[in-house]
Design a protein around this nucleic acid. Structure first.
Lengths: 339, 339
DNA sequence: AGATTTTACGCAATCGATTTAGTAAATAAC
DNA sequence: GTTATTTACTAAATCGATTGCGTAAAATCT
């Protein structure tokens, strides 16, 4: 049993491929094809259960209606959500998405990028990484439309959709200060990553503005992991002048810190207040619901998709854009006011 | 600036497309092409930064090295994990994955399936749904290799990779019974879904075996949501003869029930014991770590991929297979022994 | 030297859909 | 009764890579 092609239909209705193609693409009126012919073709196509071969179309059209989305850890709920919204938005616009999970592995990132290029995707969305520079240049060299979200790489000029990390963190730390906290720790991620640097800037600015000292031993950079949050919080708690509040730079760290605090036998927020960057399901599931800085994930996704599509369709001719979205402070239960 | 094709290279090195193709596919020795020619071609390809157009290859080869994976809710960590492992396994085998999230929307499922068929994917992996039957027949009608995981649909003969829901639940309920519980509630999902039916069977069998009555008001079927877990647990707690232990049929329900118990002012496990189906990150993040029935997610993913690829490559000629994997009971803190 | 084999390639069809540039036949206009 | 126009299509090139079949030229054999 052969697969039905345009030719199959053409042979059976005794018209040419061209005619069949035009009918099935709803262009028959514009090409002087009689309604009777059109109906015949459509009926035959339905009868044979014809499904167009997108690959063949793409080859001819030099457009695949496919977008690659590369994230580092799809199991991180921040990315899961992002991917979900991106997929949905692109689906609505008629695009198919190839989601690539690199697991922080540069080799795999490289492999995925090569696959996407071989498949001639119309564009790529990427949450970049300092170390990805070489991989990214593979894309830029090919002039494949590219949009970054989540994180900025200073060395690379491109379209970025970001959130205001500095202002978001400042708002969080200001909130802690307004609640009477003076000893505030910063448990951060990768010290070379732009998000972390900006969040740290926000932290420092808020402290300075309130004339509070920035104490180095209250600052724990390392990486965005549960483990780091866990260990850092334990170390901080053991200090003689232990901080009364923790700012945690992402969803993983905040969970680790939460657990670290509990495991030390302390209570949140009575003994230690905690606030995290990123909102996520578990944050409201914890017995003490976490106060967090929430990123507008859906908005990030939609903006990124819009921007990328505008590049693909050449409707946007301005030079590179960096769009910075606002975060939202969500007050819940993990912060206590000090007397 | 034109994209480099085989023709571009052929023109520059003054050999035919065939020769260039053979060289770049490492078939030059088998076709009597001299090493000098091969080297020249390879050098020129590198110089021009040639990247093969997979679409064109696919068209010719009638094989796309693409697999569609359809899940209902990619933000459910169970599916996120599954998708991650599937993607990784297929990546290793040279396949690209198109992940489709339907959000429990049959229209969207239909749309996604049509996209996958138009793209001539080599196979589809699907977590099915009673109501998906019509959509699934679109795939079966086309003879596209298909593997199901997670859930069985009795009406459809196909390859299934499942877990032993009945035994897993039985083990969980037996554990509760062994800890002295006699009043055990079942908070379930969709009563028409095979997983839920089997889990319920396991529940009933364990009770019967222990000569415990099956009390209807202890059984709350509805759907696999947080909300259902939350509400059901509250209703159960309000009963005069409230159960001492809850079995929750998935990761969402168990979280809802957990929250419901806490919100009623009760303590886990002192006042109520709870056990859930599915392990997930939050389960160990909760202050009382949840005892759960763990599904072997990676194994499910690998088995499904292996089975699907064996169908695609025709190395497996046996008729439909249903593979049932074992679950594992993970004892943590949410179950208390009754005196 | 002539026959045979080996070396080193090329031609052209093919995959399936799209599109430009036509053409034959019917109808209308003058 | 011509010419112009409209109607209703078609042929063939194209997208880029692959492959079965074929062949010229060089090398080897007898």
């Amino acid at each position: 049993m052969q697969i039905t092609t345009l030719q199959t239909i053409a042979n059976l209705v005794h018209y040419s491929r061209s005619t069949v193609s035009r009918v099935l693409n709803d262009q028959w009126n514009e090409h002087g094809i009689s309604e009777a012919t059109a109906e015949l073709v459509i009926a035959k196509a339905k009868e044979l259960n014809y499904i167009k071969n997108e690959g063949a179309s793409s080859l001819r059209a030099k457009k695949t209606f496919t977008i690659g989305v590369i994230v580092r850890d799809i199991t991180n709920p921040f990315y899961t959500q992002l991917v979900k919204f991106v997929e949905n938005a692109l689906y609505t616009k008629g695009y198919t998405v190839i989601i690539c999970n690199t697991g922080y592995d540069l080799e795999k990132e490289n492999g995925h990028i090569n696959v996407l290029l071989r498949r001639r995707v119309d564009g790529i969305i990427l949450s970049p990484n300092q170390k990805s520079i070489d991989n990214i240049s593979l894309i830029k060299d090919r002039n494949v439309p590219l949009a970054f979200f989540d994180c900025k790489i200073d060395e690379i000029e491109a379209d970025y959709i970001l959130v205001d990390n500095e202002a978001g963190t400042s708002e969080a730390v200001n909130h802690l200060i307004s609640k009477g906290h003076k000893k505030i720790a910063y448990i951060g991620g990768d010290p070379f990553e732009s998000n972390n640097r900006l969040r740290y800037e926000g932290y420092k600015k808020s402290l300075s503005k309130a004339a509070l000292p920035i104490r180095e031993h209250y600052v724990k950079h390392s990486n965005y992991t549960f483990k780091h949050g866990y260990e850092a919080s334990k170390e901080l708690i053991r200090l003689n002048d232990a901080p009364t509040a923790f700012f945690a730079a992402n969803n993983r760290i905040v969970l680790g810190a939460y657990k670290g605090i509990i495991d030390c036998g302390l209570h949140i927020p009575e003994d230690v207040s905690i606030i995290g960057f990123d909102d996520f399901e578990t944050a409201i599931m914890l017995p003490i619901r976490l106060t967090v800085v929430c990123q507008p994930i859906e908005e990030i996704a939609l903006c990124t998709v819009d921007l990328l599509l505008s590049r693909i369709n050449n409707t946007n001719t301005q030079s590179f854009v960096t769009k910075i979205l606002k975060t939202e402070l969500i007050l819940r239960q993990s912060i206590k006011g000090l007397a």
